[in-house]
Design a protein around this nucleic acid. Structure first.
Length: 436
RNA sequence: GCGGAUAUGGUGAAGGGGUUAACACGGUGGAUUGUGGUUCCAUUAUGCUAGGGUUCGAAUCCCUAUAUCCGCCCCA
């Protein structure tokens, strides 16, 4: 029979069990920290009506969204978790308690050209806070605080949360009379980190920005010092109202970060942070691992004032951030930052010698499981060698061998695979060994 | 959407027109029928992305298609 090649689509990721265990550990860690800060779980549909998801839709979203028809219904796979959140909040407005804090860890889909660290299906771990009419700026500091604790717990080394404010950028460029070029300028200066100053300067020139303004932009971007010093010198650069408003917002956010006791070396004011979807209106964030800057931003987000305007007349400003976990995981793995995982799920493998002792073995298994021990049992009629090897290859640290002798004595031959030692013990002693 | 590169087993790969496709890892079975990780032995692609062409002969040369990878755009 002609076989079908068992392949998956490019841009889609699947892992082997040891990696999946590791991946799930990261998901569990992220979820735990999110919940510690009072964020509530949410799960929206993978597929939604295209008119809903594309209500705002700029060019890129429209190009990259997976869109199809089922009968006459125009459907799309969700492109991110923020737009579905806006829809959710709008449709459940009456039943939600504001400020509404939710997290969602789910897959999203983008039909892009796949390449390194870029997937067509990937996990996003979002937290967002939606206010009713208004949302205090303190929340703009709480978001990076949560992220700070997440990355602390993930143990990926030193990282920096880079913070900026769109109003500062827009206001500054408007003060130079560049209001029409803002989007392009933001896009270009965002490359600063990756491409360097020369490239940025050249592209700005190509964009038709005059030399004088480019110099002003670089003066602005080169503002240095501590956060306080930067803010102080920035204030003198322009009196533009939007610009000043953005700076005041940054001041509030940074002073709140101190109250949240986020260590100062873990965040910074970075004027080149412009990226993110175009729905961001105020504070924006990006996070990099200091030891691996080439990974780029592993977590970004910001404040969006008007995201629900397409669904409701209620004014529901929000702030949120997202960890691109699939990318983060694959790049950490590739860079060798994550150690090989030898942890298994099961703590012990029970091995019945033959089917006569299976009943006794299952009694032991149930006893262990009732006491919270993850227990696997081997049922294949193979040699002892294969049975032990199974545990060894899965990384299960202990084996409980059960034959006629053990049944007669109501005990288990408890073998430690790491040391090779073995002892004959009762199930109570077995439980004790496994709980420690 | 644009540009570049590459396609050999479960994996990493050698071979660049001559007949059994090297080597390594992994898998399976075995080396005193209740003991793994080391070692040893055996075994593991009638086939080199697919289709067509050149040739006495094609993984090897040519064409087409497809897939994958890497940039750009954009982004997690």
């Amino acid at each position: 029979m002609k076989k079908v090649e068992p392949r998956i689509l490019s841009g889609f990721m699947e892992l082997l069990p040891p990696d999946q265990i590791q991946f799930n550990w990261m998901v569990d860690t992220i979820r735990r920290v999110y919940e510690e800060y009072g964020f509530l779980p949410l799960d929206t549909p993978t597929i939604e009506l295209s008119e809903v998801l594309l209500a705002k839709a700029g060019g890129e979203t429209e190009k990259q969204i997976y869109r199809f028809f089922k009968g006459d219904t125009d459907l799309s796979l969700r492109f991110d978790l923020t737009v579905p959140l806006a829809r959710y909040v709008s449709s459940h407005y009456n039943d939600l308690i504001f400020p509404f804090k939710r997290y969602q860890i789910s897959k999203v889909f983008r039909g892009e050209r796949p390449q390194k660290g870029r997937f067509r299906e990937f996990y996003q771990c979002d937290i967002d806070i939606i206010g009713n009419e208004s949302l205090d700026l303190v929340y703009d500091a709480e978001i990076p605080t949560v992220i700070y604790h997440v990355f602390e717990e993930l143990q990926l080394g030193k990282f920096t949360i880079r913070i900026n404010n769109r109003k500062v950028l827009s206001g500054f460029f408007e003060s130079l009379g560049l209001e029409h070029e803002i989007t392009d300028i933001l896009r270009i200066i965002d490359k600063m980190d990756k491409m360097g100053e020369e490239v940025v300067k050249r592209e700005l020139l190509e964009q038709g920005i005059v030399e004088k303004n480019i110099d002003a932009i670089f003066t602005f971007l080169h503002t240095s010092g501590t956060v306080e010093e930067k803010l102080a010198s920035l204030k003198k650069l322009s009196n533009h109202p939007l610009y000043q408003e953005g700076l005041e917002e940054l001041e509030i956010v940074f002073s709140a970060l101190k109250e949240f006791q986020v260590k100062e070396e873990y965040y910074t004011l970075d004027l080149t942070i412009a990226r993110g979807l175009d729905y961001y209106t105020g504070t924006v964030y990006e996070t990099i691992l200091d030891d691996y800057p080439s990974l780029g931003s592993i977590c970004s987000g910001g404040r969006y004032e008007n995201l629900t305007e397409y669904y409701t007349d209620q004014h529901l400003p929000g702030i949120g951030i997202s960890i691109g976990l699939s990318r983060l995981y694959s790049q950490l793995k590739e860079a060798g930052i994550l150690k090989e995982n030898h942890e298994s799920i099961s703590s012990i493998l029970l091995v019945p010698m033959d089917k006569e002792v299976r009943g006794y073995t299952l009694d032991i298994a149930n006893y262990l499981r009732e006491n919270g021990i993850k227990t696997d049992v081997y049922y294949q009629e193979k040699g002892m060698k294969q049975k032990i090897k199974y545990a060894d290859r899965l990384g299960i640290p202990y084996v409980g061998v059960i034959g006629e002798e053990e049944v007669a004595e109501k005990k288990v031959a408890f073998k430690n695979l790491e040391t090779g030692t073995q002892e004959l013990i009762t199930k109570e002693e077995l439980l004790k060994r496994l709980t420690k």
